[in-house]
Design a protein around this nucleic acid. Structure first.
Length: 464
DNA sequence: CGACGGCTAAACACTG
DNA sequence: TCAGTGTTTAGCCGTC
């Protein structure tokens, strides 16, 4: 039940050829069957391959090939990369996305300005298709990150990485979980699949002591960002629940991701060679599962942002909309380092707090559809605290998920309407995304990487 | 120095 | 019975 509804919500049946068909649906205008996104030519892709590595960065996270999915034990092969872009967005809105149109323009304009935002957007969205049929059909290495050619990319990166492959990822468990969940088409994963995703993307854990699984579960249980969704009728295999990201905390997680601290340098991160040099290290991000530069995480962040913003128009009232970049209080990127660790900024709550009328989030829908989690949220202590933790929220046994969180800012508009009303703000979203992309491109001032120290520098184990 | 975030370990209960 | 899952507690470390 839960699964079915989740799948319905994300816009497609995951079965059958699932990925490709769903991707087609997401890519094509349902009315005209015209492609919503003009995919660049192969030549373009190859050109980009020569000039940037950012796609390599995005690949494993955003659009791993279905083949890879199948290989992954934990990650059920029911995701498509593009889902992340338009998965929860009505196709019509995807079609109306200024981003899509701008991409059309840019992809045909032949603009080779490396710092051109269109180019960046194009690159990113190209990469968003990595997991889709285009990825499968395209012989371009860009679209075959993990396929035949991708293997070489990976091996190449691994060769560069050396020991770093076994380095601890610079992400916190909550972020790992978040990424795993966000990468799932249904935006929810069982613990096992979360394990699988982490293992797949961060080989470090494959050789790490199993304690990390405990940590994952610990995070899921304690971190308020994650919510448990009963599989209920949909349970086909095994025990356990599905876990999803609480939409209310999604911005927090994204900010956390954006602000994640990283090791500043790693031996394998070879100096960039091509013009968009700042992209170069990004190649290794999720292939290494470690050793990121801050620009790398910005890339990841940009991915996440784009994953949920342009084209995937956020409805400020729709918790299902990952983030509304147009809202200044949504993806709040504070310059205050103190806030970097304070994910509980009330503005987040304001922006993303679900209204009772906007409980159309995947989770809320699930909840309303009868798959009551029955667990509400526990009194999370780890992760992202809400300033508005009410007594109700602290009561882990209150089953009223949809109204679990007190409302602070109401969205006066019904979901559907609000979506339309927000469209003029897409420019702002694009600007936001552009900012992230500029970060991604290394066009940022004063990378104070030196300020940041590796969180994972402490030796594994042996601590106690 | 304290608060806080994060990680790890452990214990326990529940469930398939 | 067992393994997986979920929860809780405790302690430690690093950062601010």
């Amino acid at each position: 039940m839960a699964n079915e509804q989740l799948r319905e919500e994300v816009g497609g049946d995951e079965n059958e050829t699932g990925s490709s068909q769903t991707l087609s649906r997401n890519l094509n205008n349902p009315q005209t069957q015209e492609p919503l996104l003009q995919l660049p030519s192969l030549n373009d892709c190859e050109k980009y391959q020569q000039t940037t590595d950012v796609l390599d960065l995005m690949g494993p996270i955003i659009g791993m090939s279905p083949d890879k999915k199948a290989e992954s034990p934990g990650v059920v092969g029911e995701r498509t990369g593009l889902r992340g872009v338009c998965g929860t967005l009505p196709e019509a809105e995807c079609a109306a996305s200024p981003l899509a149109t701008s991409l059309d323009r840019s992809s045909s304009s032949g603009d080779e300005e490396l710092t051109n935002l269109n180019w960046l957007h194009e690159n990113l969205l190209q990469n968003f298709t990595l997991g889709g049929p285009e990825a499968q059909s395209s012989p371009s290495p860009l679209f075959d990150i993990e396929g035949t050619n991708g293997a070489s990319v990976i091996s190449s990166a691994t060769a560069h990485a050396g020991e770093s492959v076994k380095s601890k990822p610079p992400f916190s468990f909550s972020l790992l979980i978040y990424m795993a969940i966000e990468q799932s088409p249904s935006k929810s994963l069982p613990v096992k699949d979360i394990y699988g995703w982490i293992l797949e993307h961060f080989p470090y854990f494959s050789s790490a002591p199993t304690g990390w699984k405990n940590s994952v579960r610990h995070n899921l249980s304690l971190n308020k960002c994650f919510r448990k969704v009963e599989r209920s009728l949909g349970k086909v295999n095994g025990k356990g629940s599905l876990w999803c990201v609480d939409p209310e905390y999604r911005p927090n997680l994204i900010q956390a991701l954006k602000k994640q601290h990283f090791p500043t340098a790693h031996s394998f991160c070879t100096p960039p060679a091509s013009p968009p040099s700042a992209f170069s290290p990004a190649r290794h991000l999720f292939l290494q599962g470690c050793s990121l530069k801050e620009s790398d995480i910005d890339a990841a962040t940009a991915m996440m942002l784009l994953n949920s913003a342009p084209g995937h128009h956020s409805d400020p009232c729709d918790p299902d909309s990952p983030i509304d970049l147009s809202r200044p209080d949504s993806v709040l990127v504070s310059s205050d380092p103190k806030q970097d660790h304070n994910y509980s900024s009330s503005s987040f709550q304001r922006c993303s707090s679900r209204s009772s009328s906007s409980s159309s989030s995947s989770l809320s829908s699930l909840d309303e559809a009868g798959c009551e989690s029955g667990q509400g949220r526990r009194a999370g202590s780890e992760g992202f605290h809400s300033d508005e933790d009410s007594e109700e929220e602290r009561n882990p046994r209150l089953p009223s998920l949809p109204v679990r969180r007190p409302l602070t800012v109401k969205c006066p508009l019904p979901v559907k309407r609000a979506r339309h009303e927000c469209k003029p703000e897409l420019d702002e979203e694009l600007k936001e995304a552009a900012g992230s992309l500029l970060h991604l491109a290394g066009i940022r001032s004063g990378l104070d990487l030196s300020k940041r120290t590796a969180k994972s520098k402490k030796p594994e184990k042996h601590r106690k």
